[in-house]
C-alpha cells in the first residue's frame, strides 16, 4: 500500500462521516447531528495530526522544504479547524441553517484540499519517502486510531 492510497482511504472515511452529519441536520435531528458531527470532527483532527506530526515532518526532513507545500497544507488545516469550530457553535445555538451553511463551506474547502494532497503531495511523499514507506504508514495508522 502506498501513502497515497492509505491517506486517500482515510479522506473517504471522513467524507462518509460528513455525509451522516449533514443528513442528520437536514432531517432536523440536531441531537444526531451533534454526535455524528463529533465523530467527523474527531476523524478529521486525527487525520490532520497524522499529517502534521508524522507525514509532513518526514517530508520536510527528506526534502528540506519547510516553507513549501506542507506549509500551505498546515494553513488550510487551520482554516478547516476554524470552520469546524464555527459549525459546532452553530449546533450549540440550535441553528441548523447556519450549521448547514458552515458545512457547505467546509465541504468545498476539504475537497479541494484533499484533491491537492491526493494528486500532488501524497505522490511526492511516496516518491521521496519510498524507503520508509512501510514504517510511516504504520505510524500513521497509530495516529489515526489513538490521538
Amino acid at each position: 500500500m502506498t501513502i497515497r492510497e492509505f491517506m486517500s482511504d482515510d479522506h473517504r472515511h471522513c467524507d462518509d462521516l460528513f455525509a451522516l452529519a449533514e443528513q442528520a441536520a437536514a432531517d432536523g435531528s440536531l441531537t444526531r447531528a451533534r454526535s455524528s458531527f463529533g465523530n467527523f470532527q474527531m476523524a478529521m483532527l486525527r487525520h490532520f495530526l497524522g499529517e502534521e506530526q508524522t507525514l509532513f515532518p518526514a517530508f520536510e526532513e527528506r526534502t528540506g522544504m519547510r516553507m513549501g507545500p506542507t506549509q500551505v497544507m498546515r494553513m488550510e488545516h487551520e482554516q478547516m479547524r476554524e470552520l469546524m469550530v464555527a459549525a459546532v457553535d452553530a449546533l450549540a445555538q440550535d441553528d441548523a441553517e447556519s450549521f448547514l451553511g458552515q458545512l457547505e463551506t467546509l465541504l468545498i474547502m476539504m475537497q479541494q484540499h484533499n484533491m491537492k494532497e491526493e494528486n500532488v503531495l501524497y505522490p511526492m511523499c511516496d516518491q521521496q519517502l519510498a524507503a520508509e514507506q512501510d514504517s510511516l504508514i504504520e505510524r500513521l495508522q497509530g495516529d489515526l486510531q489513538t490521538a
Binding site: Q79, E82, A86, S98, L100, G101, Q102, E104, T105, I108
Partner: peptide, 16 residues
C-alpha cells in the same frame, strides 16, 4: 477573504 480572518473574527461563510 480568508487571509483577513482574525481569531474570534471569522469571515462570513459562503452562504452569507
Amino acid at each position: 477573504l480568508q487571509p483577513l480572518a482574525r481569531p474570534g473574527k471569522p469571515v462570513p461563510p459562503m452562504n452569507k
